[in-house]
Design a binder for these strands. Structure first.
Lengths: 163, 163
DNA sequence: TGGCGGAATGATACACTATAACATTATATG
DNA sequence: CATATAATGTTATAGTGTATCATTCCGCCA
């Protein structure tokens, strides 16, 4: 992923982002036994359609777009648990929110950049960070199971706009 | 800080941890204009007495040890905000909890190790991690304001015990 | 094909985390 | 002492997440 695509222009074509993700997921579903039910798929689609991290209740609000009665919160959380376990979604701890993974299929620890201006979240690929964490932890005899890196700051696009 | 003191033995003398922190804070209070009211001090003492991160309501429960009516949640949050702003406490995002800073006075970004067995949290000093984050973010034209690093895993002590 | 078993979802209630809004008290400073 | 600002009290409520038990869906196999 290039530096440009990490934080795309605000008014870019979201449709392509969604399609890219969902086609990858579709391939995974065909290959493996990934039980992507309609409900789980809808939650993933909602997340894929937003570069801004969404809370569970945000997702809930965007699901019931006209159907019958809205789902209960627990339904959304269950779908999110499934998607998290299968690496299709990342949790943003510092926001109590969720973001679609931009590299599904490749198991990885998420390194997230969070723009405090536009509120968008992007993944960062930086083996150097992961390596530095592994080395430092090992020096302290700490066994790493899940490194969390969330970098708050201002994205490329918002820095440019402000000038 | 040595690798040993980061995660001290489970049954070590907590009193010394508290004293060390509070004496440092006392010095800061004398030097600067740090308005450490009784309420803020009590919250800090509660946190200093625990190597396990405490939620706001945990703190609340440990405050009212026999006095008059217990404080309201908002009081604890206000004290925590103050302590956070003055670098005496860190927020643990992935736990929605708080931990006393082990290096008050030295402004720094917190690198936290969280043991999933004993639930204790320790700070890690690792300039290499901070540098790697700064470099990688800069490469993506992202301006870092506040890096969050929380490393979940198993601490030195718990790894040893399990053998 | 009909039933069995496990996975997924529905439904209800509740626990935990955090803040809004406004009143009151404490503290420093001239 | 007066007064302005900071801190705390009080009450209510918003936001996030889970427990529990009932029901439905779906693949599998006798």
């Amino acid at each position: 992923m290039s530096a440009e695509s990490a934080f795309p222009p605000i008014d870019h074509d979201h449709g392509r982002c969604v399609d890219l993700l969902m086609s990858t997921v579709e391939r995974l579903r065909a290959e493996q036994t990934l039980r992507l039910t309609p409900q789980r798929r809808r939650v993933l689609e909602v997340l894929a359609a937003s570069h801004v991290a969404l809370g569970a209740y945000d997702i809930l609000a965007r699901l019931g777009g006209g159907d019958g009665r809205p789902a209960a919160p627990i339904s959304v959380y269950r779908a999110l648990d499934f998607l998290l376990q299968h690496g299709l979604v990342h949790r943003v701890e510092s926001l109590n929110a969720f973001i679609a993974c931009t590299r599904p299929g490749e198991r990885h620890d998420a390194l997230l950049m969070i723009c405090s201006v536009c509120r968008r979240v992007a993944e960062l690929q930086a083996p150097a960070i992961v390596a530095a964490i592994a080395e430092s932890a090992a020096a302290g005899q700490f066994l790493v199971t899940h490194p969390i890196v969330e970098i708050a700051g201002i994205c490329r696009v918002c820095r440019t706009v402000d000038r």
